[in-house]
Design a protein around this nucleic acid. Sequence first.
DNA 1: TGAATAGTGTCTTTGAGACAGTATCGA
DNA 2: TCGATACTGTCTCAAAGACACTATTCA
Lengths: 294, 294
Amino acid sequence: MSRQPARPDDEAAFLAAYDPRDFPAIALTVDIVVLTMREGRLNVLLVERAGPPFQGCWALPGGFVKAGQEGLDEAAARELAEETGLSAGALRRVHLEQLGSYGAPGRDPRMPVVSVAYLAFAPDLPDPRAGGDAARAQWTPVVGLHGGGTGDRHATDRHSADPHSTDPRSTDPRSTDRPATDRELAFDHAQILADALDRARAKLEYTPLATAFLAPEFTVPELRAVYEEIWGEKLHPGNFHRKVLSVPGFVESTGETAERGGSRGGPRARLYRAGDARLLHPALLRPDREEGVR
Amino acid sequence: MSRQPARPDDEAAFLAAYDPRDFPAIALTVDIVVLTMREGRLNVLLVERAGPPFQGCWALPGGFVKAGQEGLDEAAARELAEETGLSAGALRRVHLEQLGSYGAPGRDPRMPVVSVAYLAFAPDLPDPRAGGDAARAQWTPVVGLHGGGTGDRHATDRHSADPHSTDPRSTDPRSTDRPATDRELAFDHAQILADALDRARAKLEYTPLATAFLAPEFTVPELRAVYEEIWGEKLHPGNFHRKVLSVPGFVESTGETAERGGSRGGPRARLYRAGDARLLHPALLRPDREEGVR
DNA sequence: TGAATAGTGTCTTTGAGACAGTATCGA
DNA sequence: TCGATACTGTCTCAAAGACACTATTCA
């Protein structure tokens, strides 16, 4: 980075040599795709935009980076805390990672804005409070949402916005009082959400992060439900169970069993905690991505 | 993104409501880790900084994003073309993907600068020309470089700079005339390079991108040499050969054979082209990451 | 009591890796 | 001629998936 336009000897000279026409003002934001499980369904946190552009549209929570005062990870953590109203303690159980940056020209009709997108995995969280500048905030089932669906499981390297994709300004998805579902997302947030889901699906293969969606103690069937919901397909219960227990460091037994059996019958399952593995070896690969994925 | 500090009805109102103390000026750059193979070794393109800070230091090539005029991918492609002097045609054979964004406070001593890092895989390229504001530009073997080495193969999610890492200003690695090797890199570029190498090592497992380092026609032993150099370990020639040919879409035969055999004897190898697969199924997993990677 | 589920055993198939062997080339 | 290498064959082992089975729980 930081090739400068001239060769200043100090900051004053640098600023003098700086030509704002070469580098017009640019704004930097962080947007967060917060995923959680509610009633067995994958949900994403959305906020309703109180002002233009895209007034009345739903969007990913986020905000401006306080340049010079915080790093990108810090900014994302701050926004996450503000939007969810979570305590620092509760936030420690949330997984937060950088997803990628989006900077297609015109993605924000007002001015050049580059957004650094983050991805968060959270256990079942309380209903969000509507933050200052958001009209409403709510958990929204991912299914049926634009950018939801099963997604292109094999898409790669979509970290940056595709300049050929639909210009968000060419449609006007705002409306007055529809729920978050069945709504287009503001800006290029549908693309960000789609990329986030791709990343989440891949992460479940190689990391134990599925446990981040569950309470500190959980059963293997609960863990399997997370995989089934995010991957969008049923898994073989017996093989899944054996597989999870065979991967070193994935889960560790508490010695306890769940209070009740399954809702539709069956024995009470044993309880586990997340293990200390950060990567799964061997990985839990998704069942046959249809052959011919060339 | 783009939660605004107030609720303006148009751009004028937005600018009026904008408090520069809340969102001080921030600069956005792209930096590129261009990897290529030269004489069997993995090389990275570095430029010598002509001005402060870090004057005389080697750094990754990059530059400011022309806000509003180009997307991030475009900016990276433009910088790549400028620094390597490659034609548009030659650039089509180069793989370019976003690596992540780095924005730790103080990473640039002059002002808040966030850098979007890109990763490029290129076949053997000619010597770079020194760009306008770089004193020199040269290919540098990755081995022995800070951030080179075998790297932490299991590090994940290091997309953003670690605020706890060494402040680049606390050392003064500049000097007068040492080669690029044995030099600290400017800013947090050692971290970016390390992350890039981690990404490259992982990409070789799941994608056929190793072919991006080779000429359009190549032999299986040449392909194996790429894997061995980037992974830093010898592979079993026989098993590697069978594996490559068994993965659908990885390589396709040209029917020809190489002009000469190996430099130290042996039969002439058959020639292949890159296939149409974008993901490898099954993957070419690295040999035993030592057990106990928890 | 019946249906659904937790968890285990076992068999088959696939793929990774070790090893050996043959043919071909450079020096 | 010798040594190195390309490539193939074969064996073993690990892991994934299909299937079957028992035990336990809810309704």
